[in-house]
Simulated assay, not measured.
Amino acid sequence: MTRKITLCLWFNGCAEEATALYAGLFPESRVIDVSRYGDGEHGAPGAARIVTMELFGQKITAINGGGEFALTPAMSLLISCETQAEVDRYWDGLAAGGKPMRCGWITDRFGVTWQIIPAQFKRLISDPNTGGRVMAAACEMTKVDIAALERAAQG
């Protein structure tokens, strides 16, 4: 079945560099196709126009559309992590030149905002007896520490 919805990210000249980073960082990820600008077109001849990639099997299109629009944290990609090692790997891979934010959010150097969140986070904050403590602990963190969240849940 053909997917009806594909996420499209708008970049200002760095789509190919960004997709190469993502495809190298995340398993089950790859650059599928790169279409390039020709002579006399909007972009520099030979520069990437549209890059199609898969991240964790999800198709994403990256467009070098220019500086007219910018990515914002109002749209983010959430990566669900099973272990602290996985949290660390993705966080560290996106941190170089990026902007860490609270509660596991980070905007990478290309302007894409990510949530690097443990899979157990939803369960921990959903408990009516302990969820408030867990959320308060998470809001004090930049990169999420799973053990600290579990300690907060235990009181």
Rank of each mutant, 00 (worst) to 15 (best):
G98P: 06
G57E: 07
R36F: 11
A95V: 08
T19N: 12
P73C: 13
A23C: 01
A48R: 09
A20Y: 04
G43P: 00
A23W: 02
Y37R: 11
R36K: 15
E68R: 13
G43T: 05
A148N: 09
W10D: 11
I5A: 13
P27R: 05
F69E: 06
A148L: 12
R102E: 06
A23H: 10
R49A: 12
A153D: 05
R102I: 01
G40E: 07
S76I: 09
G24F: 05
W91R: 04
L9S: 03
T2P: 03
S80E: 10
I125T: 00
R133H: 10
R133T: 03
E140S: 15
T72A: 14
E82K: 11
I79L: 13
W114L: 10
S126R: 03
T19Q: 12
G46F: 07
G67Y: 09
G131E: 02
M53T: 00
L7W: 06
A20I: 05
T113S: 11
G67C: 13
D145R: 08
T72L: 13
E68H: 14
R89P: 02
M101I: 03
I63N: 11
V112D: 02
H42S: 04
E140T: 14
F121I: 01
G111R: 06
D108W: 06
H42C: 04
P100E: 02
T113A: 07
A119G: 03
R133A: 15
A152Q: 12
E28Q: 13
A148G: 09
E54S: 09
L94D: 03
E41N: 10
P118H: 01
D108F: 13
V112P: 00
G66L: 14
R3P: 07
R102H: 14
T113Q: 04
E41W: 06
Y37L: 14
A85I: 04
W105H: 12
I5C: 01
D33A: 14
L78R: 15
E68N: 12
V112E: 06
L149T: 00
A15P: 02
T142V: 02
A147E: 06
E16I: 13
D39Q: 15
G111S: 05
